[in-house]
């Protein structure tokens, strides 16, 4: 009887210890989730999928990409902010419009700097102003001239509300005296599809989103909204070259995890991403996606996000842009 009791006790103990032992594995013991708060097919999503492709090369566990679009990126980012800070929930696209632009325009349900830990920067996406191939516009001057002559609003496709593209186009409208009506979609892919169908007059997007359409002859590029020309499309003049004094940093694309994630886990993720950044195959993939690789480690990236947010706040104040 005694032996039986002992046996039972051991079995029960074993039953309870198994899960404990399973939980004590080293990071990562299961696939990590890379959440993209934008619709599939946009520039953030493409970059996330490029990261996912080479993640397995440097980490024993694969990365699983999940798209959670909505609210200009807020929906998905908020999900990350309140997810378990164990490193298995990564936010890809940190530094997008809703992280560095939106806080200056409206109240956020979370603090993009305090509630998230910047892991690494991967790329910077400039904003390109384009128009459909059949459009009468051939340069920014044509758009301004049209607006002055007809006095009608210029409908503009942008990927999300209050994102970097929306802001760049709104800033252009204010500075050039053009009545720009930005029409937000849920991601760059949808916005460019609508523009390709000729349903809007002009549109904005990141090089990775618009270059395929330019190559296919569906879009004409009008201007790049950067201080200097974008290396991925050197033939396209900047807004400044065309006499409109507006330039932004575009959209920054990095990786973040929720605040409270253990330091060693953040370090592991940072090292893994920086390794991927040097992988020649990854660089080739990113080149094909028309996304410049501009990697930064956790510490520098945190400072960069702070600086970029301040720059945008200043621009918004100068141009007196308000939403709603």
């Amino acid at each position: 009887m005694k032996r039986l009791t002992a046996l039972l006790a051991v079995m029960l103990l074993a039953l309870f210890l198994v899960p404990v032992a399973m939980a004590a594995d080293v990071f990562p013991s299961k696939p990590v989730t890379g959440l993209v708060p934008m619709a599939p097919g946009g520039s953030s999503d493409l970059m996330a999928r490029a990261l996912e492709k080479y993640w397995g090369k440097y980490s024993p566990q694969p990365m699983v990409i999940v798209n959670k679009p909505g609210g200009g990126g807020v929906v998905g980012t908020e999900q990350i902010v309140r997810s378990k800070p164990d490193g298995y929930n990564m936010y890809i696209a940190y530094g997008s419009g809703h992280d560095i632009v939106m806080p200056s325009l409206q109240k956020m349900p979370y603090d993009p700097q305090k509630d998230l830990i910047a892991v690494a920067r991967v790329s910077i996406h400039s904003v390109v102003i384009v128009t459909g191939a059949n459009s009468p516009f051939n340069s920014i001057k044509d758009v301004i001239a049209y607006s002055k002559k007809e006095g009608k609003p210029v409908t503009t496709a942008v990927s999300v509300k209050a994102g970097a593209v929306d802001l760049a186009l709104t800033a252009f409208g204010k500075a050039a005296g053009v009545n720009i009506v930005t029409v937000p979609f849920s991601g760059g892919a949808e916005a460019t599809t609508a523009l390709a169908g000729g349903h809007l007059m002009i549109g904005g997007g990141h090089p990775s989103e618009v270059i395929p359409h330019i190559k296919a002859g569906r879009f004409k590029p009008l201007a790049v909204v950067l201080p200097q020309r974008d290396p991925s499309m050197p033939d396209v003049p900047t807004l400044k070259e065309q006499g409109v004094d507006v330039a932004t940093w575009g959209s920054v694309k990095g990786v973040a995890v929720p605040a409270g994630t253990p330091k060693e886990v953040v370090k592991y993720l940072e090292t893994t991403i920086l390794k991927i950044c040097k992988d020649p195959e990854f660089l080739e993939t990113m080149k094909n996606l028309n996304q410049p690789v501009m990697c930064q480690g956790s510490e520098e990236f945190t400072k960069f996000i702070k600086q970029a947010t301040e720059d945008y706040a200043k621009l918004i104040k100068e141009l007196n842009i308000k939403i709603d």
Partner: peptide, 22 residues
């Protein structure tokens, strides 16, 4: 239910965090 895709406002979540993403 959840965050409005255009205005970024939360709808019908009545304070339930999990409902914010719909």
């Amino acid at each position: 239910v959840g965050l409005d895709p255009i205005s970024g406002k939360t709808r019908f979540s009545f304070g339930v965090i999990e409902l914010q993403s719909g």
